[in-house]
Design a binder for these strands. Sequence first.
DNA 1: CAGTAACGGAGAGCATCTCTCCGTTCGGAG
DNA 2: CTCCGAACGGAGAGATGCTCTCCGTTACTG
Lengths: 200, 200
Amino acid sequence: MVTAEASQERADSRRKRLRLIEAARSAIAEHGLQASTTDIVERAEVGVGTLYRRFGSKEALVADVLIDGLAEIQTWADAALIDADPWAALSGFLYAFTEAQLANLGLAEFTSGQARELPPEVAEHGSLLAAAIDRLVRRAQEHGSLRADVTWRDLVLISIAPIGGEECLGATRGENQWRRTITIALDGLRAPAASALPPE
Amino acid sequence: MVTAEASQERADSRRKRLRLIEAARSAIAEHGLQASTTDIVERAEVGVGTLYRRFGSKEALVADVLIDGLAEIQTWADAALIDADPWAALSGFLYAFTEAQLANLGLAEFTSGQARELPPEVAEHGSLLAAAIDRLVRRAQEHGSLRADVTWRDLVLISIAPIGGEECLGATRGENQWRRTITIALDGLRAPAASALPPE
DNA sequence: CAGTAACGGAGAGCATCTCTCCGTTCGGAG
DNA sequence: CTCCGAACGGAGAGATGCTCTCCGTTACTG
């Protein structure tokens, strides 16, 4: 998405297109998928007209940015799948996935299903990622380190668990607060399970 | 808050005031703290004027509703504190607290600090509740059933963990999905701890 | 240098929200 | 039952914020 086909794109045009994508990424990370076009073009230091000439709609730009983010996480999941230690691969991926969502509110909104009316292409990338997480889960279960009764859905839910608690009950949110939550959950994910899970 | 001092309030006036509070409760539960006045008065089947004559502002009505909700949860925490089994008391409270927030989006927003510009009275009720949860945590730790390195903050973060995942990655959200997440977390909270938590 | 692709940003047009104002209704005391 | 004023309903003022279009201006490139 970020890479363009080597057409006769004018140099300034290309520069501003890349600036727009980067600006959209940071605006969406901070304010979520409904970050305003005004916010995006101010960060990019371009006019609104430029955004609409290049992308046609705000939705198309948002989709580009989301797909970029999902593709990056996909590479992490794929790398984890060839890690020698299935438990370390799973837990490392879980920390990274959570951190990515904490750093990018838009991504967290997509993961938790709050996204509205996105192009089907985005959903496809989401499904690919879900499949990779499913493989990670099964591999760790076959290895015997992950409790047998969890599914990829449980993993994804745990990954977004710390999102809502960013600034909680007046607490000065520490850098490490989310790591504590994930660590507790990972302890609960270890085999053997201490108690039975309710059915899905 | 719901109960009025026995003044010479006209019967119809009292009826509509109670209807407004109940309507606000359900609107806030469904749409969060920024539920619109229009939504509230339609549920209550009264005019907007009635809302503003009785409560002065939307914010005052929202605060009333929030305080009611917090007070109810406070009674659960207080009851848990005199339960004979500290672990059962803690885990039972955690399930109930989470369920209450799932059933009331506004409450979840307040807990996770997304509330803006609420009267200080609401924050005071939040602090009272936090103190009660702190006592629940310490009691279970002294009893030896809860790992020693968690705090009330960890508990609150876990309680709001399932909120974001209501409808996740296209999954048809099951009634029990949140219970699975909480159960996994509780298994991770049991003493002895499998791994050390990062410092707060 | 000329031609034209790309640009900037004012503002149209729409949606939505809170709160006010005032003519109307109706509860309840005498 | 009558009557008075407390309580009511809801149109709409006024504010904000959003996406997207249009067109005069700028500046890249052959």
